[in-house]
Structure formats: C-alpha cells, structure tokens
Design a binder for these strands. Sequence first.
DNA 1: GTCTATACCACGATAGAC
DNA 2: GTCTATCGTGGTATAGAC
Lengths: 220, 220
Amino acid sequence: MARSDSRERILDAAERLFAEQGVAATSLREIGTNAQANPGSIYFHWKTKADLVRDVFRRRLEPLDAERVSRLDAAERASAPDPARLEEVLEALVGPMLWIASGSDRGGPGFLRLLGRTYNEPDRDLVRMLRRDHGATLERFRAALARALPDLPEEQLFARFHFALGALAYTLGSEASSHLALGRRRRPVSGRDVLRELMPFLVAGFAAPKASSSDLRASA
Amino acid sequence: MARSDSRERILDAAERLFAEQGVAATSLREIGTNAQANPGSIYFHWKTKADLVRDVFRRRLEPLDAERVSRLDAAERASAPDPARLEEVLEALVGPMLWIASGSDRGGPGFLRLLGRTYNEPDRDLVRMLRRDHGATLERFRAALARALPDLPEEQLFARFHFALGALAYTLGSEASSHLALGRRRRPVSGRDVLRELMPFLVAGFAAPKASSSDLRASA
DNA sequence: GTCTATACCACGATAGAC
DNA sequence: GTCTATCGTGGTATAGAC
C-alpha cells in the first residue's frame, strides 16, 4: 500500500501486546521491537501513544459496529411493523463478534480479548474515546431491546443489558482456560463454542420474570 | 494498634486509587501522598509494590471468601441430603458482595469496583496470586452449581458460570453511570439495587434450555 | 517506625542524520 | 519513511538520618 507497511505491522503488534498485557503496561519501545520497527518511527505515524491506541481500536471497531448495525437493520426490516424479536436483537449484537473471531484480518480472537478487557479499562481517556466513537451503536441496541421487551421497566432492562455486556466482555477477555482455575479438566473452549453457549443464557436472562422476590440478605 | 496506623492508611489509599485508576496506573508516590505518609515508608511495610497489591486484596477477599463458604455450608446443611437449590447457591455467591458493599470497614462499594476490574486484569502475577489464594472458593461454588443442575453438561455449566462471574464483575467494576453511555436518563443504580436485579437474571440464565438451536452466523 | 535524599532505570517524546 | 541519539520525567526501590 501507499502508506508503507510498517504502520500496519505496528498496529498488529500493539494490538497483540495490548491484549496480552494491557495498554498501560505496554511500552512503545516494546511495540516497536515486536513490529520489527524502530520505536522512534512510531512518532512518524502518530503524535502520541494515545493516538496509536485510538487507531488500534478504530481499525477493528468500525467494521464491528457496521456489521452489528447492518444485522439489526435487517432484522427490524424483516419484522416491520412489529419490533425485532429478542433473539434477533441479541443475535445481531453477539453474532458479529464471532465474525470478528473467525477472520484474522479482522483481529481474530486476540482482538476480542483486548475488547473484553477494555470494557473494564480504568483508563479514563480511552473510555471517553470509546464512548464518543461507539456509544451510539450500543444505544441503538438498548432501544431495540426495549422494544422487544415492552413490559420490562427501563431500569431493569438497563441493568440486564449491563449483565449481558459483562458476560460477553468477561468471556472474551479471559483466556481459553479461565484464570480463576475453575475446574482442572481440559475443555476445548473455542470462541465459537462460547458465543453459542451465550445465546440461550442471555435470552433466558432477559426474559426472566421481573419481580425479584429474592430476599438478598446483606448480613449473615 | 501495635503495628502503627500508617500501614492501614496506606492500604486504604492504595485500595481507593487502584479502584479509580487501576493498579498499573497508580504509583507508590501517589499512594504515599494520599495516605499522608512518605512514599519511602511504604518499603518499611512491604518489600515491593506487588506485595502491597497482594495485601490490598487479601484484606478484603479473605472475609469475603469466608462469608461465601459459610453461607454455602449453611444452605447445603439445610437441604441435606439433597443438594442445595440453584437459588441458594447463587445467593451465597452474590449476597456477600452486598454485605461487602454495605460496610465501609469491609471495603464498601470502592472495593467492589476494584474487584470487578481485577477479574479482567491483564497483570499476570496478580491473576496468579488470586487464583492461588482464592480459586478454591470458586471451585466449591462450581461444584455446588453442578449438583444443583445435574442435567446440564459440564462444559455448559462451566460456560454459564463464566457468564455469571462476568455479569457480576462488569456490573461492579463499572461506575454507577455506565461508561458506555447507555441512555442519558438518570438512574439511581445503587450496588444493592443492581445485585438484586442480578439474581433473577442469573437464575433464569442457568436454568435456560441447554440445546442451542440458534444458528449463530459467522458471516453476513 | 517514619522521614529525606537519591540511585537507577524505563518511559514517552524530540531532533536530526540518512 | 526509518533510523540513532538523547532529553526530561517519573517510576520502583534503597540508604541512612532521626
């Protein structure tokens, strides 16, 4: 390409290292070395580290957002004038992550891990950037879920949407074998398998009865 | 106390700053200043930063583990020889977090945020420490869930346990107003409220039908 | 037990040769 | 467009006075 390929190599290396170690713990020197480029040359392509980080996410999130919105549009057109069904909305939200995972040119499982971790990222600037650039997509899904579940109060829908994103993020962010040592047994947990398991869990959770008769005790 | 109180002040300040900024982004200088102690004096109490981090978590996780196990024991005794019911097991897992949130001497909401973030922490050493010291508790809960849901294949139970931990972690780790700008409306999302919402979501998710007829597509 | 002072190093970022 | 050399800052950690 016209721009040189070291730019892409640097983005690839940064993405991989960010996923493995976190953004804060990854230095530009390390990225440069891993990309077989000189750390100094990063500053030809980007002004600051924050700018590089932004582009690492943008390169993957823009196609992901587009794919999600496109599937949601299709589902809503198909069922119009009725709202899209719960399963369809969730499919449009979760399915594209499988699409990401299956193509190494779209980031693959490595980017999913990075994305999962980033949902909980304490870095304020990074969070602000993600919200600004990609918050609108999630808001569209929240609204679609509200239409699919008209009887669920807004606060509860909101909470459940959070739980769903959490389940998704945590699952993607963890390594294949959980870092919390749940079970020693060997399990072939591919991204595809996990996301397929996730669907019925989320559908049931969203459709759960809204009243919580559960007397959750604070004290023993 | 005999040991001096600067030790506790340092632990308090570290806990708060870790929750706000993340472990990697918080320096010992900053902790010392916030604790009204000299950064250098941290090295009297701990050998390295990693040791301090370990104690920040230990101070809160040991009571949390004990409370969780104690409630699970009680539930299992009450229903013996039958296994504890799904709701009871989940209550023993989630309820103690509410107990944590309600007492500032147990960390309060601040520690819950830190804990939520840490589930996705990229720091390998920290993760190894948490697994070593507290993995046994989660394994006990996984086993109790398996007994409560004898018909669910092990892989699926495992995946759903992951989803549950993810929903919990993400919810706790996020600020009250989601960082992803879902809805602009004001919501009073206390820790107590959110955890109460979580219970029916998890119960329904775990009890969901196991077969996934969903044809999750990878391509558009 | 807590402080000051400081060593040492890696970081992000810049300047300028090529 | 990429490299080397280097700056200033701020990180962890240590030594030693009090």
